[in-house]
Design a protein around this nucleic acid. Structure first.
Lengths: 212, 212, 212, 212
DNA sequence: TATGAATGAGATTTCATTCAT
DNA sequence: GATGAATGAAATCTCATTCAT
C-alpha cells in the first residue's frame, strides 16, 4: 500500500486512516497542543496498532499534517456547499459570521489555518505543501471566498471596480476581526454583540454596489 | 537569586539573561521552529553554561516565554515610539504597513504575538500569563493602536461615531491579513504591490471623518 | 503492556523483567550502594535496551523496589519451604541460624529487609507498600515464623501461654542477634562459634514447654 | 582552617559547623531521606553560604557523615549519662525501652546507627570509619550497654555465667526488634502495649540472676 | 497487512563543586 | 574566611520508529 502522502483522491482514504484523522481532529478540538500529540495517542484513539500508522505514513509529522489538511478541506467543502445555497451576498455574509462563531466553539479550523499559513513549524510547512497540491487547492479559502464574491459581482450586488483579490482580502480580514473579538473575549473585553453589525455594515459599505 | 519570572522591572535583567533572550530572538528570526529550540542551543549561543539557564528559570518553556514576552514588549515600545512622531493618521498607517512588511522579513514579533494569543501550546499559555502582567500590558497592541486611533479621533481625522475598540480590531485584522497575504503568497495568490494601496484606501474610507 | 506494579501473579513476570530483577539482586549482592544503582547499569546487565525498562516500570525507584520485593518474597518462600520439611522446632531453629549465616554471605535479604522496614527512603516506602499487598503478605517473616511457632505449639513443643506475636518477636530478635554478631565481626570482635549455642539455648529456654 | 575530618576534639567545633550539624539532624528527624539532602539545604538552614561548607569539608558525604557521627555520639553520651543515674538493671531496662519508643518518634539516632553499621552506602562507610576513631569509640552502644550490663553483674543482679558480649548483643537486638515492631507496625502486626511487658520479662528472665 | 515490544538517541534537569570577589 | 553565581557532568525519562511475528 502506497503512503497517504501520495494519495490524490480524498475518497479512497482507508478506514484506518480516517480513524487516525478523526483522532487528530478530536485531540485538537479538545485543545491539545499540536506539538504534544503522540503517535500512540492517535493510534490508541483510532483503535489500531502503533505500527499500522507507519504502514500509511512515514513520520508523525505527516500523519498530523495530512489529518489537518483533510480536516481543513472538508470544512471548506462544507462551507462552500452551504454558501452556494444562499442567494444574496448579505445572506452569505451572515452565514460566514455564523460559521465563524461555530468554529470558535471548536477552536479549530479557521484559526488553526491561520497559524498554518504563517508559522515556521515543521507541521505548517508540510501542511502548506499539501494544501497547495491539486485536490486541495480548489477549496482553499481564497478560492471559496473568491467564488462567493464573484457571484455577488455577477449578480450586480457587489462593486465591479475592485480587484477580486482585494475583495477576498477584505472579506477575510473582517472575518478575522470578528473571530479575534470572539476568541480573545476575556483578554480584550469586547462585546461580540456590538461588533457583529458594525462588521457587517463595514463590509457592505465597502464592497456593495448599491452603497456606492 | 530569584527567578526571572518574578522580576518585574524590565531594566534589571542580568546580562546573561539578556544574552539568552537575544539568542532566542535570533533563532526565531532565523525561522527555527519554536518547538525545536533546545536549551543547549540557547546557552551555547549566549556563551554561558547550560546550568546557568536554570539559575534564572525553572523550565525551558519559561525561558522561551520570557524571551518572547520581552521581545514583544520591546518591539511594541519601539512601534509606539515611532508612531508618536507622526502627525497624521495617514502617515501612521503607512508606517504600520511598512513595519508589517518588515516584520514579515523578520518573521517575527507581530505575528508571533498573534499565535501566542490564540493557540493552546504550553508556550502560549505562559506568554499570555506574562503579557497580562503589569509591565507588559501598556504596550500590548490593543493599547498601542488604541492610542493611535484615539489621537486620530481627537485631531478630528477619524470618525467619532465608531466604538474605539471596533476601530482597533478592524485595524489589527487588516494588518494581520496583509501580513498573512504576504507570508503565504502561494496560498493567497495575491500581489502585495496591488494590495497595499487598496488596503490603505479601504481603511481610510472606513475610519476617516473627511472621507465620509 | 501493563506496568509490573499492577502485576499480581509473580509467575507471569516477563523474562526481560526477571533479567532486571536478577541484575538488581546481583548488584546488591556485590555490595553496591542501592542509591548509586543506575537504570543503565541494570539494563546493560540484563542485556536489554534502556527504554525497555520503562515499558515495564514508570520510574527507577519502582524497578528497584519491585526487584527487591520479588527477591525478598522468593527468599522467604524458599525458607518457608525448607522449614516445613523439618519435624521439630529445634531442627527448624538450627536451620534458621544456618540460613542466617548464609544470608550474611550474600549480604542481602534479611538485613536489607530490616532496612526496608525502618528507614524513610523512597525505596523503602515503595517496598513497604508492595510487601503489604496481597501476594507478598503471605511470605512476610511474621507470617512464616508465625506458622513455624504455631506448629511448635501444636506439637506441644512450645509454650502455650505466650502470645504468638511475642514468640515471633523473640525469635526474630534472636536471629537478629546472631546476624549482627556475624555481620559486625570486625567491628565488635565477637566469636560466632561461642554465640550460636547461647542463642539457641536462650530461645529454647524461653519458648519451650519442657523447659518451663 | 583544617577540615573537620581532621578535628579530634568535639568541643572545638566552630559555630558554623555546629549549625550545619544541627541542620542535618533536623532534616533527618523530619523524615527526609538521607540521600536526598542537598548541600544548599544544609547551608540555607544553617544560615551560611554554600561555599562556606567547603571551607570545612571536602565533600557533601563528609558533611553528613560528620554530622551523623556527632549526633550519634551526643545521643549515646546522653543515654550513658541517664543510665548511670539508675540504680538497678530493671530501671535501666525500662529507661532504654522508653528511649527506644522516643527514638521512634524522632525516627533517628539509634536506628540510623544500625543502618550505618550495616549497609554499604557511601555515607555508612564514612561513618563507620569515623565512629571507629578514638573520641567516638567510648560511646558506641556496645560500650555503653557493656558498662550497664557489667554494673548489673557486679551488683549481683545479672548472671555471671554468660559472656558479657552475648548479653550486650542480646539486649541490643531485643531493643532493635522492639523498635522495628513499632516502626513497621503494619508489617509486624503487633501491639506495642502487649509486647513491652513481655519483652521486659523475657530479658529479665534470661539475664537476671535472681530469676534463674 | 497489522501489530506492539523493543529500542536508543537525545532531551531536560539537577546539584556538588569551584573560584573570583 | 565567606560568599553565591556559574558550571557541566551525569542522571532520568520520552517517544518516534523499527521489525520479527
Amino acid at each position: 500500500m502506497g503512503k497517504m502522502t501520495d494519495l490524490e483522491d480524498i475518497h479512497l482514504i482507508p478506514p484506518k486512516v480516517l480513524g487516525m484523522y478523526q483522532a487528530v481532529a478530536e485531540l485538537l478540538e479538545e485543545g491539545v497542543d499540536i506539538n504534544s500529540i503522540r503517535v500512540s495517542t492517535i493510534t490508541d484513539r483510532a483503535g489500531i496498532g502503533k505500527g499500522t500508522a507507519y504502514e500509511y505514513f512515514d513520520t508523525k509529522e505527516e500523519i498530523i499534517a495530512c489529518a489537518l489538511a483533510y480536516r481543513i478541506q472538508r470544512t471548506f467543502e462544507y462551507i462552500d456547499g452551504i454558501l452556494t445555497e444562499k442567494n444574496s451576498f448579505q445572506d452569505q455574509l451572515e452565514l460566514l459570521l455564523d460559521e465563524t462563531e461555530k468554529q470558535e466553539k471548536k477552536k479549530f479550523c479557521f484559526w488553526r489555518l491561520v497559524h498554518m499559513l504563517t508559522d515556521s513549524s515543521g507541521f505548517s510547512q508540510l501542511i502548506r505543501q499539501r494544501m497547495a497540491s491539486e485536490p486541495f487547492a480548489e477549496y482553499l479559502p481564497v478560492k471559496v471566498f473568491g467564488r462567493v464574491l464573484q457571484g455577488g459581482v455577477e449578480r450586480g450586488e457587489l462593486r465591479k471596480d475592485l480587484p477580486l483579490e482585494y475583495m477576498v482580502y477584505s472579506l477575510i480580514s473582517r472575518l478575522l476581526t470578528y473571530f479575534m473579538a470572539i476568541t480573545a473575549k476575556d483578554c480584550f473585553q469586547v462585546d461580540a454583540e456590538v461588533l457583529r453589525p458594525l462588521i457587517c455594515q463595514g463590509i457592505m459599505d465597502e464592497l456593495c454596489e448599491k452603497n456606492k
